[in-house]
Amino acid sequence: MNYKVLNTFVEVEHDNTLYEKGDVYPKENFKADPDRVSFLQSDKNRYNQSFLGKEIKPKNSDASTPETQEPDTGDVDESKKKESTKTQSKGKGKNESSEEK
């Protein structure tokens, strides 16, 4: 189970590992002890603030996996190509006419 770090702290139970706001707790090679997580989620400490948020739920496993997704060929949508071509030709027309004068 993973948790979002709400406030930066040093986890003494993880070899004094620094957890910064926005990190995921626990870091690789460490385990989250349920009692410790409860303590870190509480604001009942000498700092009067919570250090961990709620558990981060894994994304749906129903979502397409890389094996089932169509490969990204980098092609641009045809409608966007046409818009781009129109914009370019409008811009060229202005430049060309100003150069001829």
Rank of each mutant, 00 (worst) to 15 (best):
M1Y: 14
N2E: 07
N2T: 10
N2D: 08
V5K: 05
V5P: 11
L6H: 10
F9P: 04
F9R: 00
F9V: 00
E13M: 05
E13T: 12
H14Q: 01
D15V: 08
N16R: 03
L18A: 09
Y19M: 01
K21W: 05
K21G: 07
G22M: 04
G22D: 06
D23Q: 00
V24L: 03
Y25N: 02
Y25F: 15
P26L: 01
P26M: 03
K27Y: 02
E28Q: 10
N29D: 12
N29W: 05
K31I: 12
K31F: 09
K31T: 13
A32T: 01
A32P: 03
D33V: 08
P34T: 00
D35T: 11
R36K: 06
S38R: 14
F39L: 10
F39I: 09
F39Q: 12
F39N: 13
Q41W: 04
S42D: 03
S42I: 00
K44S: 11
K44L: 09
N45D: 07
N45I: 01
N45T: 07
N45L: 01
R46F: 09
Y47E: 08
N48G: 13
Q49R: 15
Q49D: 01
S50W: 11
G53P: 12
G53D: 11
G53S: 07
K54N: 14
E55Q: 13
I56K: 06
K57M: 08
K59D: 15
K59Q: 11
S64M: 07
S64N: 09
S64Y: 15
E67Y: 07
E67V: 08
E67P: 00
T68D: 15
Q69A: 09
E70K: 15
T73G: 14
G74E: 13
V76L: 02
V76N: 00
S79E: 13
K81S: 01
K82Y: 13
K82A: 08
K82S: 10
E83Q: 06
K86G: 06
K86N: 11
K86H: 11
Q88W: 13
S89D: 13
S89P: 03
K90S: 10
K90N: 11
K90L: 07
G91Q: 06
G93F: 12
G93M: 11
K94C: 02
S97K: 15
S97N: 13
S98V: 05
S98E: 03
E100L: 02
E100Q: 07
K101P: 06
